[in-house]
């Protein structure tokens, strides 16, 4: 067992177990705690999968941003300490059973695919991200270029499967940027609307 698979096993277990813990936990803050562990471990899995930038983004945005926001929400909406809103055991059991069934179905579909023999040689013999274009997790530059509309990792000069030029992800990037701005304004408005109502009411 190589170091890599050891680490993978560790973090995969951490991820899955924390996720289960999220489901089992009754307190919201504990859920948040386990969620941090789960998402952090996922970030570690990303690092292991040579996706440095995605892992760092996961840490910064998800763990450091989104979850803090969620905890804020917990605190602002808690009417007492250690708020618990219990679910009935029957519901939990039914949900668990259906979840297990779902997991089984997904497992069946994953294992049902012969990744080696799928048409188009879907599974590469090695990472398509070769040394030059960002092996060993050095994907920052290629990702950045992709977001700017350049694809250094793709052979699009005509020798590949098509002549179509690549535009990268410049347009989606811009759309997401605008989307974020809209969300920012929208969220601010939503959070603010109540206050003005109260002011007008009083």
């Amino acid at each position: 067992m190589s170091g890599h698979s050891l680490l993978f096993t560790f973090f995969a277990l951490a991820t899955c177990l924390s996720a289960v813990a999220v489901v089992i936990s009754q307190t919201v803050v504990r859920m948040a705690f386990w969620l941090i562990i789960s998402l952090g471990s996922t970030a570690a899995l990303f690092f292991l999968a040579d996706a440095d930038f995605v892992g760092a983004a996961q840490l910064l945005i998800y763990v450091g941003g989104t979850l803090v926001l969620l905890v804020f929400g917990v605190m602002l909406t808690a009417s007492g300490p250690y708020l618990k809103i219990e679910t009935s055991p029957g519901e939990t059991i039914i949900a668990g059973m259906i979840g297990l069934l779902f997991l089984f179905i997904v497992y069946a579909s994953i294992s049902g695919v012969d990744w080696k023999s799928t048409p188009g040689d879907a599974v590469a013999t090695d990472s398509p991200l070769d040394n030059r274009s960002g092996a060993d997790g050095q994907t920052l530059r290629p990702v950045g270029l992709s977001l700017l509309g350049l694809r250094p990792d793709k052979d699009l000069s005509g020798g590949g499967d098509g002549d179509q030029p690549s535009t990268g992800y410049l347009l989606p990037f811009e759309i997401v940027s605008v989307h974020l701005l809209v969300v920012l304004i929208g969220a601010a408005y939503l959070a603010r609307a109540k206050r003005t109502q109260q002011a007008s009411a009083s």
Partner: peptide, 20 residues
């Protein structure tokens, strides 16, 4: 809300089962 989620899940499971 939660029942809707359950409906979705059950639907997906059923769909996959039928597919398989």
């Amino acid at each position: 809300l939660r029942q809707y989620v359950m409906f979705i899940v059950v639907g997906v499971v059923t769909l996959f089962a039928v597919l398989f």
